[in-house]
Simulated scan of single mutants.
Amino acid sequence: MEERPRIVVGISGASGAVYGVRALALMRAAGVETHLVVTRSAHLTLSQELGLGPSALAEKADVVHNVADVGASISSGSFRTLGMLIAPCSVRTMSEIATGVTSSLMSRAADVVLKERRRLVLMVRETPLHLGHLRTMTALTEMGAVIMPPVPAFYAQPASLEEMVDHSVGRALDLFGIDHDACRRWTGMGAARRGQTS
């Protein structure tokens, strides 16, 4: 029997918990097995921004790993995955990964993804950025990570906050080759004009 594709999903304490929650939903719809790890501060953000507790969040993933469990399956390169998406990614989590600090399962799983040359996508949620942030992002890019801040795409003319979230999450899923219909795809200015009615 063919294995389902697996992805590690990390939710850190930065604002934007909705990105991680929506990613879990879209991956489930696409038939991807999700392995979730959540930092302690992320639980506070999830509660503040979405009113979502740990058990309600756990129902959205296939497997949930405790952030302190550095011996979990996702801490080993022999556990095959497509990679890891951290959505949102805090500056603290980003910095730990860049320096090779693996004090939690979040940073350990990300470190494994990098060493195995798998896809690591970080939806970094911070602005404005100082030079230290930018240098850390450069270092991570040189190590093979993809820095993908969730930036709204206004050309898609989103009608709601949900559509804006879906576009960013959908573009992140594109980086893993996951099929979805979460975002409106650009077909060119000419095509947009032809679709207009007078």
Rank of each mutant, 00 (worst) to 15 (best):
M1N: 00
E2V: 09
S12F: 10
G13R: 01
A14I: 14
A17Q: 01
V18C: 02
R22E: 01
L26T: 04
M27K: 05
V38L: 13
S47N: 10
Q48C: 04
E49P: 11
G53I: 00
P54E: 00
A58Y: 05
V63N: 07
A68N: 07
R80Q: 13
G83W: 01
M84A: 03
L85P: 00
C89F: 08
V91R: 10
V91Y: 06
T93K: 09
T93Y: 09
M94W: 04
S95K: 02
G100K: 04
V101H: 13
M106Y: 03
M106K: 04
S107I: 07
R108D: 01
P128N: 04
L134G: 09
L134D: 06
T138G: 11
T138E: 14
A139Y: 00
V146N: 02
V146K: 03
P158W: 09
E162S: 09
E163A: 12
D166S: 08
D166F: 04
H167F: 14
S168Y: 07
L175H: 12
F176A: 01
I178S: 10
H180Q: 13
C183I: 00
R185Y: 09
R185M: 12
G190Y: 12
A191D: 15
A192Q: 12
R193C: 02
R194K: 13
R194M: 05
S198T: 14
